[in-house]
Design a protein around this nucleic acid. Structure first.
Length: 828
RNA sequence: GGGGAAGUGGCGAAACGGUAUACGCAGUCGCCUCAAAAGCGACCGAGUGAGAGCUCAUGUGGGUUCGAGUCCCACCUUCCCUACCA
């Protein structure tokens, strides 16, 4: 290799990034008449450094965007920052750095690094959710939801650290203890804001059925998360107590097997019972107190089922049996009615609880043949035939469910109901670094939303971060305000919004990113939505992707945007990037930064490697070995193509070149195979560019061989391939591609060129290898012209000694012929 | 406990039900060089054979099929998600 012909990737890559930026070639225009294509990668949290895990995601999205652009579409490909959240506040608490400064510095650094990757983002649309010109629209949406009754406030339990005097996010509770001070976390009821996602539950479910561009597993996860279950809610009277206990069950057919009623300690009936049962009060309250010190996590995880009898008895409305009412730790106050009928014989949890506390186990369902009889060694969960159930004896479970439900309904004691596992979205956070909730509390006017012309409610600066309590609640200058209605003294809501609010609509803000009168204009939003291809990790399968769908349905309903009510037509789940077997993340401290990789190997080599190493949906364990192969590839391309750049430009690309022999035909074919691979991987949404890079390798290997032949520098086929090289490389190695393109004397960027349609004539082969099998095993391969007839193939095959040796003495029973592929001779 | 994904050379991996191991990494040998690096070329699943070849190999065991890495059933292993939802 001569010194002067080494590709200087450092200089070249930087120069092209600057030029692309200067010329704005990736800016998406609203008035572009070509069909739109919106490709979006999930926006990152600005943790400080971009690592190769991010790079894996963005490289894929960028290849998709570039191929669509070269295929003649008006591509929208924006980028922004999910910039609110806890790490910034922790930096403030631990190191005294202002959260805004910390975040904006991180964004600046990461934005530099994303640019370093040469990705084709339209930076004119960049957004950062922590800036007032973004979060004011969070507040605007909050008020719209409030006006529609979809944002409401009620008491809800939160994780409370008694030492730090603050609410903790679930992620900050480690084994029931505060992550910072180690104190046992308590459950407290605080007034919190909720978004009423449950109003949209049926639509969210129905939409999933239509989203066939989404992975099944994500759709399944969302369905499970929503957790729809149909059953019966009915009520028990409590003996001598003015209270009814409602329970929800999906197995009303087992109601005669109820041997106890279990309630959550928070259940309102508990207090009424205790008024009548003063002797039980102390024990029940002590029990409740031991539960209270535990977070919901701890309460629901791996915990033994315990409980305490209240002393009261409920009456089974159908059997009229007296059954004890227990307060237990395994009934969730937040789901259903906060009480369940305990049927040990037919529910695993009830069985475990009954065993432990010596409660009776009454079998009421048996196997269809009636063979299953007490005593049961475990709960029988299947449907079956009813026994010991009064007038319902002998019925099948399904029939009994209908009959019993009808009976309870007729008695006015119950009705069929649907319950959902999903709860309303709790959006209040007792935290500083988020969007202030735009609500004022007035002693006269009550809960008053901040009027639109007073938005945004700005986050105050110079707040004290002590880690004690909520910073906003402690800031009198922020909290004390005047009522927008009456002008009298009032207080602001001291909480901020869950950052998932920010990411629920950002993909629409990109489409009109600088609008200061509305979150976005309807025309612009409607022109570009929906997102054609969304790309991101599966970790957002339920939260972000469910919230965003809910938000978008609301936007459609309110007419803010028109079109389909699903925001993401297709979703692609990137596989995780691991390092040393663990997820790469800053908090784990196992981050491979991209600055070093780019400096050492070059961006194009890194991008090619990330695509080549594995199919994009696979988990990839990062290793530096292997990337040198892509560095070699980049240099090989350069050495092959650059010297011929001048000569190659003269060979037109709009038709196939003169091909003087087999070698030339193979070379041109390899080019079209690579073109075809890049295109079809994109159009089938498979995105297996690892295969496309292999085709590029084969192309360059053939080109290298061709160049060693005398006269190669004047061979039209060689020059044609060299001329086309920048185009086929452009989506994957954009800098190298544009540098070669410009060396060919082109003034414009190769990224604005058209992809070359794979030509069937170039893809055709003039000789095929026909596989000859005997009884399914390969015995010979014969070279033949395409389209060879079965009889002729058979004749040729029977001349092969390796074939006849296997048939020897046997009769040919059957022939299977796959044209141009295979002949299988079945002999016996 | 529930749900999902995946198991192919030393490694990353490829393969519309039809030539298993493309392409790359690592390795071995050679060319070039005073030497090295880079580059270029050849080889590179296991067994057997002088060789043409033959036999065995896609986690394990069955099945469907002319033919199975691919489809079906059971099991083993790994990873991810979720978790008392009545």
């Amino acid at each position: 290799m001569s010194e002067e012909n080494t590709y200087d990737f450092r200089a070249v890559e930087r120069a092209w990034q600057e030029r692309w930026e200067r010329e704005g070639i990736y800016v998406a225009r609203d008035d572009d008449p070509r069909p739109k294509y919106y490709v979006l990668e999930m926006l990152p949290y600005p943790s400080g450094d971009l690592h190769v895990g991010h790079a894996k995601n963005y490289t894929l999205g960028d290849a998709v965007a570039r191929i669509h652009r070269m295929r003649g579409q008006n591509v929208m490909h924006p980028m922004g920052w999910d910039a609110f959240g806890l790490p910034a506040e922790n930096a403030a608490i631990q190191r005294g750095i202002d959260p805004e400064t910390w975040t904006l510095e991180n964004i600046a650094n990461m934005q530099r690094q994303v640019r370093l990757m040469g990705t084709s983002y339209d930076w004119t649309r960049e957004l950062a959710s922590c800036l007032p010109d973004y979060y004011r629209w969070n507040q605007w949406f909050f008020i719209r939801l409030f006006e529609k009754g979809l944002a409401y406030k009620r008491e809800a339990p939160v994780n409370w650290c008694p030492v730090d005097q603050t609410v903790l996010a679930n992620e900050q509770v480690e084994n029931g203890r505060c992550w910072r001070c180690g104190a046992a976390v308590e459950r407290r009821n605080l007034a919190q804001w909720f978004f009423k996602i449950t109003d949209y539950v049926e639509r969210l479910l129905a939409g999933l059925d239509r989203l066939d561009g989404w992975p099944d597993r994500i759709r399944t996860m969302q369905r499970n998360w929503i957790g729809k279950s149909e059953g019966v809610t009915f009520s028990f009277d409590v003996e001598n107590v003015e209270a009814q206990i409602d329970v929800f069950t999906t197995r009303i057919d087992t109601v005669f097997g109820t041997t106890f009623v279990a309630v959550a300690p928070e259940h309102p009936a508990v207090e009424k019972i205790l008024e009548k049962m003063p002797k039980s009060r102390r024990r029940v309250e002590e029990f409740a107190a031991t539960l209270k010190s535990k977070s919901e996590l701890e309460r629901t995880q791996l915990m033994e089922k315990t409980g305490i009898p209240t002393g009261a008895y409920a009456i089974n409305p159908l059997s009229r049996e007296r059954i004890p009412v227990w307060v237990t730790n395994y009934v969730l106050a937040e789901y259903g009615t906060g009480a369940v009928m305990g049927v040990p014989a037919h529910d695993e949890r009830d069985f475990e609880f009954a065993k432990k506390h010596g409660l009776p186990i009454a079998q009421v369902i048996t196997t269809p043949d009636g063979s299953l009889r007490a005593p049961l060694s475990e709960a029988y969960l299947e449907d079956g035939k009813l026994i010991a159930s009064g007038e319902y004896i002998g019925m099948k479970s399904a029939t009994a469910r209908r009959s019993i439900a009808a009976r309870l309904e007729a008695m006015g004691r119950g009705k069929t109901t649907v319950n959902y596992r999903i709860r309303d979205w709790l959006v209040s956070r007792q935290r500083y670094w988020g969007t202030p909730i735009p609500i004022v509390y007035c002693p006269v006017d009550g809960t008053v939303p901040v009027p639109g012309d007073q938005l945004p409610v700005l986050l105050p600066k110079d707040v004290q971060f002590t880690g004690q309590g909520s910073p906003l609640a402690n800031d009198a200058a922020f909290v004390n305000t005047t009522c927008p209605k009456c002008g009298g003294p009032a207080t602001r809501d001291p909480d901020t919004m869950d950052t998932f609010v920010d990411s629920s609509w950002y993909y629409v803000r990109y489409l009109d990113a600088h609008n200061d009168r509305a979150p976005f204009g309807k025309d612009k939003a409607s022109k570009w939505m929906t997102v054609d291809q969304y790309i991101g990790g599966a970790e957002h399968a339920v939260l972000h992707l469910l919230y965003a769908r809910f938000f978008y349905m609301f936007m459609i309903d309110e007419g803010y945007v028109s079109g389909d009510d699903e925001p993401f037509a297709r979703l692609f789940n990137q596989g995780m990037l691991l390092y040393r077997g663990e997820k790469m993340s800053k908090s784990r401290g196992n981050v491979v930064g991209i600055d070093e990789a780019v400096e050492k190997y070059g961006v194009d080599a890194m991008r090619l490697f990330l695509l080549k190493a594995a199919p994009p949906e696979d988990t990839l364990d990062w290793t530096d070995e292997g990337i040198v192969g892509r560095v070699r590839f980049v240099q090989r391309v350069w050495r092959a193509a650059e010297p011929l750049a001048d000569a190659a430009r003269a060979v037109p690309l709009d038709h196939l070149p003169e091909m003087r022999g087999d070698a030339q035909r193979q070379l041109v074919r390899a080019l079209h195979v690579a073109l075809d691979s890049g295109m079809s991987e994109t159009e089938t949404y498979r995105f297996h560019y690892n295969v496309t890079t292999a085709k590029l390798d084969e192309l360059i290997n053939l080109l290298g061989s061709a160049l060693r032949e005398p006269g190669a520098a004047e061979d039209p086929a060689v020059l044609y391939v060299v001329h086309a090289l920048p185009i086929v490389l452009a989506p994957f190695a954009p800098h190298l591609a544009d540098e070669l393109w410009s060396r060919m004397g082109n003034a414009g960027s190769v990224h604005l060129e058209r992809w070359i349609e794979p030509d069937p004539a170039a893809l055709a082969v003039d000789e095929i290898t026909l596989v000859v099998q005997v009884n399914g095993k390969v015995r010979a391969r014969i070279q033949a012209a395409p389209g060879i007839a079965e009889d002729e193939a058979f004749t040729l095959a029977m001349r092969e000694p390796t074939v006849t040796a296997q048939i020897d003495g046997k009769q040919v029973r059957k022939r299977i012929f796959v044209p141009d592929k295979l002949l299988n001779i079945v002999a016996a």
